[in-house]
């Protein structure tokens, strides 16, 4: 699991590359949490285009960060989901908390940028 970070104002853009399971979840968690702890992030956009696998351990990590953002009414959005990951989002209802957009631009627009 490789995690790349980018910032647009108070929006953190996280690109996750690889397989997200219980073993790799800690990597994603700590790299997001590290940014949240700096206190300058309001919203998060997840670029999942290079995420080839995810199971319920991934759900747990994303939900955990979603709850952090909710403390200050921050939003979490995602784009680029591969079919398996999208299926998991829809099946578990995660897409109701973390809406799925068609592109990065759509995510940014949804956040009013």
């Amino acid at each position: 699991m490789k995690v790349a970070k980018d910032h647009r104002g108070d929006i953190l853009i996280i690109a996750a590359d690889g397989e997200l399971d219980h073993h790799t979840a800690a990597v994603l968690k700590s790299s997001i949490q590290e940014e949240l702890d700096k206190g300058r992030v309001r919203h998060i956009i997840l670029d999942l285009s290079a995420l080839s696998f995810m199971d319920s351990s991934g759900l747990g990590v994303l939900l955990g960060r979603y709850k952090e953002l909710a403390k200050w009414q921050g939003k979490m959005l995602a784009f680029g989901l591969q079919p398996l990951v999208e299926k998991l989002f829809l099946m578990t209802g995660l897409n109701k908390l973390i809406p799925v957009c068609a592109s990065l631009d759509d995510c940014l627009r949804a956040l009013g940028v």
């Binding site: 747990g60 099946m91 578990t92």
Partner: peptide
């Protein structure tokens, strides 16, 4: 406490 979603069995069944 471990940030589990409680969805593992549901995913297997699906």
């Amino acid at each position: 406490d471990l940030e589990r979603a409680g969805m593992g069995f549901t995913v297997m069944e699906e």
